[in-house]
Design a protein around this nucleic acid. Structure first.
Length: 305
DNA sequence: AATATGCACAACCGCCGGGTT
DNA sequence: GAACCCGGCGGTTGTGCATAT
């Protein structure tokens, strides 16, 4: 038995908000505030919406001082740098960018910034990576592909990532997401990772690259491959902090507002204390982070475009 | 002009953690 | 301490517009 739904789905409107709904929501909040209970909010405000939907609409769109439109170069740099250090903690990244919402930043990252970054590290004529696989075709892989293509793609991948091989955490492959039914996970042409050979290690894990690519633990058992997003993301984040140290943190390369840096340092300290040392693991975004770091360490900013 | 494809963004979904009972 | 509720979060999907064919 699952969790009870937060609202009566049958009597709740979904989809885009109308201007009338927007003004209703806005007026009510300006008059009475949110009331501290979003679940009860729609009824009070006379909206046929889920409370969560109201909250999201307010926070991401209607709230005062929301900044819409183009991200500045400095914002780009901030996002990239924070992403390299803390991963996809959009709410934390958003906290460093006044007026921007986590959703905004997440969308911006997924649709533009990541591509911009990856594109800069691809030879122009080969922006579209060939999809390939290897002889290690898992049973559910419908199309056999040549290993030569894999080799080409593999070197192509190495050429910009500097990584020999990569293993995916299993949470990229959640139980509800079958490769057979949702191949889109690996279809992004932004990364040749999509065509790394992969094979099941156990029922929940697929390995990419060679077996030797498993770098997870001392005994080679890959035990850090995790299910929870927190372990994965925070693990990467704080491994990064542990290994780089705040002094080497690429943030220092930004003209950072000192208060913001201080906030982040405090947060990082708390988090470090909480998580301690966490084994490094790779995921699809790892190489993006590598790119950011390596680019930042050079004389030319990767965001000079 | 019609259709296909790509892209950007808004919104939804489901999980998790913290607080309360 | 267990059960429940709610807010918050990140990942994913849906939709509409723009551009290419």
């Amino acid at each position: 038995m699952g969790r009870a739904p937060c609202c009566d789905k049958a009597n709740v409107k979904k989809g885009p908000w109308s201007p009338e709904e927007d003004s209703k929501l806005k007026e009510y909040i300006e008059k009475y505030g949110t009331g501290g209970n979003w679940i009860a909010f729609p009824q009070k405000a006379g909206l046929k919406r889920c409370g969560k939907s109201c909250r999201l609409r307010w926070l991401n769109y209607l709230r005062p001082n929301i900044k819409h439109g183009e991200f500045s170069d400095e914002e780009d740099r901030t996002i990239c740098t924070l992403f390299a250090n803390i991963g996809s903690r959009w709410s934390i990244i958003a906290a460093q960018l006044p007026g921007r919402t986590d959703n905004d930043i997440k969308n911006y990252w997924n649709t533009k910034l990541k591509k911009k970054l990856m594109g800069m590290h691809l030879p122009p004529q080969r922006k579209l990576a060939p999809f390939a696989s290897s002889s290690q075709i898992p049973p559910f892989q419908s199309q056999p592909l040549s290993s030569s293509l894999y080799e080409e793609c593999s070197s192509y991948y190495k050429s910009f990532s500097g990584l020999e091989a990569i293993s995916f955490p299993s949470n990229y492959l959640s139980s509800s997401t079958s490769l057979a039914t949702n191949p889109s996970i690996f279809q992004t042409h932004e990364s040749c990772v999509s065509s790394m050979p992969y094979y099941p290690v156990n029922e929940n894990v697929l390995m990419f690259g060679s077996e030797g690519s498993c770098r997870s633990s001392d005994d080679g058992s890959c035990t850090q491959i995790s299910y929870g997003r927190d372990i994965k993301q925070e693990g990467m984040a704080f491994q990064s902090y542990v290994s780089n140290g705040l002094e080497e943190n690429p943030m220092s390369m930004l003209n950072y507002d000192s208060n913001r840096v201080e906030n982040l340092k405090q947060w990082a300290e708390k988090a470090n204390a909480y998580f301690g040392e966490i084994p490094l693991q790779y995921d699809l975004d790892h190489d993006v982070k590598q790119l950011i770091r390596s680019s930042n360490s050079g004389s030319n900013s990767f965001l000079q475009y």
